[in-house]
Design a protein around this nucleic acid. Structure first.
Length: 823
RNA sequence: GCGGGCGUGGCGGAACUGGCAGACGCGCCAGACUUAGGAUCUGGUGGGUUUCCCGUGGAGGUUCAAAUCCUCUCGCCCGCACCA
């Protein structure tokens, strides 16, 4: 440093430690219900306690902290809590691998991550911390399970379920990505098991419909949920098996094409297939085909690339409308668990059916003609799936197909041949997990009474501590006799406990309620407290939860609303999905070796710098490219702020200054207030908010030598600190104190822009000739358009350019621009 | 294949309702202070044949005026993917 130390050094380590300690002692961020103030619930997705924070966490929580601090300064009563999504497999793997008990592993990790979060200076009310693995929490997870059970929304069913061999547990559909386990990447198989499900499909329509009530959610997330729910409207048509006379319901979205059915296809594993082929010459080959399909993985089987393959069963079905007799096939592309597992083949009007028919030489029958055209089955190169007019369709011939959909459906309903139907791709949520480290499902199996829910007053069903972890990866609960053996709550006879635990998404589906009353041991929450804080005003997290967590939570909230426990339709009013943190264009990962550790950055530059950089480098919803040099830049900026404030402090005593200099400084100050406020409030553009603050610092730096009055300097410096406070809470708090304030800067009100102070006296007007900039002229701000035009035409350079040309017209934009169109 | 997003200097990114393209930061260049500087400060920095011309992936169009609106097209990223 140059010369004598006129200004002190920015000692971020001492400053950050000092204020973190003081904020905690003073409980600065404690949230208390207060009906007199508007509330604001700012929530970030709570982390899985993996052991260490990564940059994604830092980004997520820095964004949330700016929102929380900003809203606080805007006068809101802010709830900003943090907790731990603490059940899950990694803890159990640690136990198997290193012999550490999952509980110890988890709690140690929590301690470490809590420490790291505190080092970031995040404004959480730590008294509301929750951990889903705490019995005081999972007692209520189990309680909610019972609520679902009471309402008939939790049920047990044997079915083919996704099985991850490496995690040794079943998975929900949502946890299978490209046929692989979302967690470990192993290929997922199928197992026929008896499992617990939640009836989320009961709410499919509302989950879809209410997306419309979420204007504060990214379009992208809503579309993803819409696709996932996959609602399609159509009809169920009852074909009849010729041989057995049995009804074969078929779902179709195109009842208008029923007369065009030339064959039917069942899923190979459809139960009716066996009956149809039994004792026929087709039996053997069909069995073979079934076996072949069974061996194929789900990925291959359902890939668009896979060629359609099928086989005739020898059986026939009767079309209820045309009375025609059509062959029944089985094929790989028909899925058992969608619709009824049976498809009607209309090759003329469905591309898949067309390809299948061509391959196997099945007949093609045209029943819809394009407007003003006549199709011929022999000449068709592809299916005609668009609208048109019905032909060869009995009494419905001649009808427009849109009307025919309605007419045919109604006709079938009258005659009992079919009915209107809606289908969803959404499946019920499988919540059983064959794992130890989760909330036990509060159910007992009694030989006499059957399935018996554990009574509320016996909750929680505690996880036994003393268990053996088998290297096979199977749940230790299976071998834990003390846990397994119990008495039936109903008949008091001997009974067995359910050994499966709940999917951790169950735990995270309601944690945002618990924050409103985290220590209540009588109830999951106090009604008044919950009603005060809910809904979450701003939710922030990664887009990877677009379907899983966010849809489960929405479902959960709707169930609890119907149970009268919650009074909002949707739990999260606004959602922000932050982008990833990249290094060298790729997601930070161990295998790529491009990880930047938050610990190191905090150690070297401090939390304020880390936060500032991560907020400055990109808008929150976009991916962020990490740059060590960018971090340096932010560090330099904070040092500049420090120096600026220290240098300007003595000048705050100057009794009066030059009026023009004062006005200029005030203009800068108030324009910055407006810009920063708009950027944060309107659109969460923290990057441009910070750049405006940087510009303000640059401006104040260059006005250092000017005759500015002490009062104006004080206003400027204090405003600078207030605007920067949500981003860099420690340095601003320290400088605020050094200015002589005794109350925390974080309890101050957000500055308000003074329109009068912002007003410009002069504006620079751009003068264009034929749309090209030819001059810039300073004009009084209040100049009329006519006068603007005049002085533009009078301007030396412009007038010389206009020589010999004809002015066609002149366009003026007040205070901005004059465009002279010439020929 | 369907749906969504993106494409702007050497880099990250600005430009909100069409109105000076490139704010702010990084990097780079020059200078100042210095035993020294990878510290700090000052100035410069899209490209070019430099009174001017060209520039927002490409080609057209609308307009007095287009990064912004329309049409076509290329490239990258994300989601869904035989859903009957």
């Amino acid at each position: 440093m140059k010369g004598g130390c006129l200004v002190s050094h920015y000692d971020f380590k001492a400053i950050e430690a000092k204020w973190q300690k003081r904020w905690e002692e003073q409980k600065l961020y404690k949230a208390v219900e207060d009906s007199k103030r508007p509330k604001y619930y700012c929530l970030e997705m709570f982390p899985y306690p993996s052991g260490k924070l990564h940059m994604g966490h830092v980004r997520n929580y820095s964004i949330g902290d700016v929102v929380a601090r900003f809203k606080r300064m805007r006068g809101y009563n802010v709830l900003h809590p943090m907790g731990w999504d603490a059940f899950g497999l990694p803890a159990e793997n640690a136990a198997i691998k290193h012999g550490i008990h999952p509980a110890k592993w988890t709690w140690d990790n929590i301690d470490n991550m809590r420490k790291q979060l505190k080092q970031l200076g995040l404004s959480y009310d730590w008294e509301r911390e929750v951990a889903t693995c705490h019995p005081g929490y999972y007692k209520w997870t189990q309680w909610f399970f019972l609520k679902l059970y009471e309402r008939g929304l939790a049920y047990r069913k044997k079915s083919y379920v996704n099985w991850c061999p490496s995690c040794a547990t079943v998975l929900a559909n949502e946890q299978v990505v490209d046929g692989r386990c979302e967690r470990c990447g192993s290929e997922v198989g199928k197992k026929n098991l008896e499992q617990w499900f939640f009836r989320i499909t009961e709410y499919a329509d509302e989950l879809l419909e209410d997306l419309k009530k979420l204007p504060g959610w990214p379009e992208k997330v809503k579309i993803m949920q819409e696709n996932w729910i996959g609602r399609s409207e159509g009809a169920e048509v009852y074909f009849t098996a010729e041989k057995t006379g049995e009804k074969i319901p078929v779902f179709t979205t195109r009842p208008d094409t029923i007369f065009g059915v030339t064959y039917m296809v069942m899923a190979p594993e459809h139960p009716m297939v066996d009956e149809l082929v039994k004792g026929t010459p087709y039996e053997e080959s069909v069995r073979e085909f079934q076996k072949k399909m069974e061996k194929l993985s789900e990925v291959v089987r359902t890939s668009t690339e896979t060629e359609k393959e099928g086989m005739f069963t020898g059986a026939y079905a009767i079309n209820p409308l045309s009375g025609e007799r059509v062959p029944i096939w089985i094929a790989n592309y028909v899925l058992l668990d969608y619709g009824t597992g049976v498809v009607m083949g209309v090759p003329a009007h469905d591309q898949r059916d067309f390809e299948f028919a061509k391959k196997y030489g099945l007949p093609i029958k045209v029943v819809i003609n394009p407007p003003g055209m006549e199709l011929s089955a022999e000449e068709m190169q592809e299916a005609y799936a668009d609208d048109g007019v019905l032909v060869n369709s009995g009494t419905f011939s001649g009808m427009n197909n849109r009307e025919a959909i309605k007419a045919i459906t109604e006709f079938m309903e009258e005659k009992g041949l079919g009915k209107k139907a809606v289908n969803y791709k959404l499946r019920d949520w499988l919540i059983s997990r064959q794992r130890y480290w989760g909330a036990p499902i509060p159910i007992v199996y009694c030989e006499k009474c059957g399935i018996v829910p554990v009574p509320e007053d016996e909750l929680p069903v505690l996880l036994p501590d003393d268990v053996e972890f088998s290297p096979k990866g199977t749940s230790p609960l299976l071998e834990c006799e003390e846990f397994l053996n119990t008495t039936c709550p109903r008949c008091k006879g001997p009974a067995k406990r359910e050994t499966d635990t709940m999917d951790t998404f169950m735990c995270s589906s309601w944690y945002y309620y618990r924050y409103t009353d985290p220590r209540n041991d009588e109830k999951p929450f106090d009604q008044e407290k919950l009603d005060y804080w809910m809904p979450v005003d701003q939710y922030i997290g990664g887009v990877e939860h677009a379907i899983l967590h966010l849809m489960y939570s929405r479902f959960f909230n709707k169930v609890m609303r119907d149970a009268g426990l919650v009074h909002v339709d949707e739990p999260f009013t606004n959602l922000l999905t932050q982008g990833m943190v990249l290094k060298d264009g790729a997601k930070m990962s161990k295998s790529l070796g491009n990880i930047v550790s938050p610990e190191d950055i905090i150690e070297k530059y401090g939390a304020d710098t880390a936060r500032l950089f991560i907020l400055f480098a990109a808008p929150p919803e976009k991916d962020l490219e990490w740059s060590d040099q960018g971090v340096e830049g932010c560090f330099r900026f904070l040092q500049r702020v420090w120096r600026l404030v220290e240098e300007l402090t003595p000048m705050m005593d100057v009794p009066s200054g030059d009026e023009k200099a004062d006005r200029e400084v005030r203009r800068l100050v108030h324009k910055t207030i407006k810009k920063v406020t708009d950027d944060i409030e309107g659109r969460f553009n923290f990057n441009t908010a910070i750049s405006a603050i940087m510009e303000m610092v640059n401006g104040l730096n260059s006005s250092k030598g000017k005759p500015v009055s002490g009062k104006v300097i004080r206003e400027a410096v204090e405003t600078l600190l207030l605007l920067l406070a949500p981003f860099a809470p420690h340095i601003t708090e320290e400088l605020w104190e050094r200015l002589g304030h005794e109350t925390s800067i974080h309890l101050m009100s957000w500055p308000v822009a003074d329109e009068a102070a912002m007003a410009e006296e002069e504006v620079e007007v751009v003068v264009q000739v034929n749309g090209k900039v030819r001059a810039k002229i300073l004009m009084p701000a209040e100049i009329t358009e006519e006068a603007m035009k005049e002085s533009a035409l009078k301007h030396e350079k412009i007038s010389s350019l206009l020589e010999g040309k004809t002015v066609v017209k002149v366009i003026t934009v007040p205070r901005k621009l004059v465009n002279i169109v010439v020929k």
